[in-house]
């Protein structure tokens, strides 16, 4: 009972933002930022405990390479020193490099080579062939749109134009599919605020909005 009421009040606090920026939303925002930060710090401490404290201190693996990571991690804090701040760049450089490496790993095979593969253009089933042709044309034209050093004129102009149109189809599809995934949250929350005890909280909220409107008019 209390639990459900708290949940519905919290939902309404956040949704009050739809009406206008107000004190309830602000409280919700501050709570969320504080709680989320606490959760990430706790998870972070758990990670450090499991990956550093347990192997090194408990299991006595003093020569583990993790120590280098610890040293690099501590280097980050040189940021707060006036003379050694530049050391803090090293760990961040290593970290960014690894991120880029991970991203690149997927880029070449998944994003380029695999995508080049295309079905036959003439098949027994004529529609499959036509579909494959359309696939080829849309792919090539939208790729051609992104040519940077060739001006979009002459033979390239219609190609780039077609490229824009095929991309628009792609974006339209995405936009259409979007709604379904996006309204899911609201739909799954609504039972909390239209069934008791949440309903009572909603009624209070509606009254507050009406009062606020009246005050503003005066």
């Amino acid at each position: 009972m209390i639990d459900a009421l708290v949940t519905s009040i919290v939902i309404l606090m956040a949704w009050s933002f739809l009406y206008r920026e107000n004190i309830f939303y602000r409280i919700g925002e501050a709570l969320l930022v504080g709680l989320a930060l606490a959760i990430s710090v706790k998870v972070g401490l758990d990670v450090l405990f499991n990956r550093i404290y347990i192997p090194i201190v408990v299991k006595q693996q003093w020569l583990s390479p993790t120590l280098i990571a610890v040293a690099l991690g501590l280097m980050m804090y040189t940021r707060f020193s006036k003379s050694l701040w530049w050391v803090s760049r090293w760990p961040i450089a290593l970290l960014s490099g690894a991120g880029l490496g991970v991203a690149m790993k997927g880029a070449v095979m998944a994003q380029i080579v695999r995508q080049l593969d295309i079905g036959s253009l003439f098949t027994k089933d004529i529609f499959t062939g036509i579909n494959n042709l359309i696939l080829l044309v849309t792919a090539i034209t939208s790729l051609a749109y992104f040519l940077y050093t060739f001006e979009h004129k002459g033979a390239l102009a219609p190609v780039a134009k077609l490229g824009i149109y095929s991309m628009m189809i792609c974006f339209g599809t995405t936009l259409g599919l979007f709604l379904m995934s996006n309204i899911g949250f609201a739909i799954s929350l609504i039972p909390n605020v239209v069934r008791p005890p949440g309903l009572y909280a909603s009624i209070v909220a509606i009254i507050l909005i009406i009062v606020d409107n009246l005050i503003k008019k005066e």
């Binding site: 880029a107 792919a139 939208s142 095929s166 792609c170």
Partner: peptide, 20 residues
């Protein structure tokens, strides 16, 4: 499945190259 996937592939390939 057809024009959307086609354009999507084109964009994906372009992004792969730019990433390299």
């Amino acid at each position: 499945n057809v024009p959307n996937t086609g354009a999507y592939r084109g964009i994906l390939i372009g992004m792969g190259i730019s990433m390299i």
